[in-house]
Computed example of a mutant assay.
Amino acid sequence: MTQSPAVAGLEDALALIADVPDFPEPGVLFKDITPLLADHTALALVVEALAAPARDTTGTPVVDKVLGMESRGFILGAPVALALGVGFVPVRKAGKLPRPTYAVSYALEYGEATLEVHRDALEPGERVLLVDDVLATGGTAKATIDLVEKCGASVHAVAMLMELGFLPGRETIGSVPLTTLLTV
């Protein structure tokens, strides 16, 4: 696993993530990112840190698109795409996209979920950065990797705001380079 490159002030920005005990149910410690999102400086630092894995050593973007997974991946991924000067592609829950899609279903601990992407969202050969807020079991990230491959594109890297280190997300996504800004 790769941690974020040293960014001045990033630690203070990440400290804005609030712990909410017993939400959404007793025994769960929810990580609320809304205070971080509400702080312009903190959000700008996080966006730059999430964009870093998609740049070469000179700072030049090496990806063609950023994909954000529903729904907080939209909040983080769109400004990352702007920072990189590339397009943004939303990966949605089933039935939310209006044109022909590719779909991938994956197991959850309580059932199954399906993610979709427009069939024309990516061109064969494009390189993409996946962005989301939390890597837990890795099911959402792995399904998105599979969608990218169905489009004929490739995943350059995955950038996550947080990783739940006690869950097997890293193992689930395999050898795809992973950058996380905070491991909890």
Score class of each variant (00 low, 15 high):
3 Q>M: 11
11 E>P: 07
12 D>V: 12
12 D>M: 09
13 A>C: 05
19 D>A: 13
21 P>Y: 02
21 P>Q: 02
24 P>V: 08
24 P>E: 03
24 P>M: 08
25 E>D: 04
26 P>Q: 10
30 F>A: 09
31 K>L: 06
32 D>F: 02
32 D>T: 06
34 T>W: 11
34 T>D: 15
35 P>C: 08
35 P>N: 03
36 L>Y: 07
37 L>R: 01
37 L>H: 04
39 D>V: 13
41 T>Y: 08
41 T>L: 15
43 L>E: 14
44 A>L: 12
44 A>S: 14
44 A>W: 06
46 V>H: 01
47 V>N: 02
50 L>W: 03
50 L>I: 12
51 A>Q: 06
51 A>R: 00
53 P>N: 04
54 A>F: 00
54 A>T: 01
58 T>I: 15
60 T>L: 14
60 T>G: 15
61 P>C: 03
63 V>M: 05
63 V>W: 02
64 D>W: 00
66 V>Q: 06
66 V>R: 04
67 L>I: 12
71 S>C: 11
72 R>Y: 02
75 I>E: 13
76 L>S: 09
77 G>P: 03
79 P>C: 06
80 V>I: 07
81 A>F: 02
83 A>F: 04
84 L>E: 03
85 G>W: 00
86 V>C: 11
88 F>H: 05
92 R>T: 15
94 A>K: 02
96 K>M: 14
97 L>W: 02
99 R>E: 15
99 R>G: 15
101 T>N: 03
103 A>Y: 09
105 S>C: 15
106 Y>T: 12
106 Y>A: 11
107 A>D: 13
109 E>N: 03
110 Y>G: 05
112 E>P: 12
112 E>V: 13
116 E>A: 06
117 V>G: 11
122 L>K: 10
123 E>A: 14
126 E>F: 04
129 L>T: 07
130 L>Y: 03
132 D>G: 08
132 D>W: 01
133 D>Y: 01
133 D>K: 00
137 T>Y: 00
137 T>L: 05
139 G>P: 05
141 A>M: 13
143 A>W: 03
143 A>S: 12
145 I>L: 04
146 D>K: 02
146 D>A: 12
147 L>A: 09
147 L>V: 14
148 V>M: 01
148 V>G: 00
148 V>F: 01
150 K>Y: 11
150 K>L: 10
150 K>W: 05
151 C>E: 09
152 G>L: 12
153 A>D: 06
153 A>G: 10
154 S>D: 11
154 S>G: 13
156 H>S: 07
156 H>I: 10
156 H>G: 09
157 A>M: 14
158 V>D: 15
161 L>T: 07
161 L>C: 07
162 M>R: 07
163 E>R: 01
164 L>D: 12
166 F>W: 12
166 F>P: 13
167 L>T: 04
168 P>D: 00
171 E>T: 14
171 E>C: 10
171 E>R: 07
172 T>A: 10
173 I>H: 00
173 I>K: 00
174 G>Q: 02
174 G>W: 03
175 S>A: 15
177 P>Y: 05
179 T>H: 01
181 L>Y: 01
182 L>S: 11
182 L>M: 05
182 L>E: 14
182 L>P: 08
183 T>N: 10
184 V>N: 11
184 V>W: 11
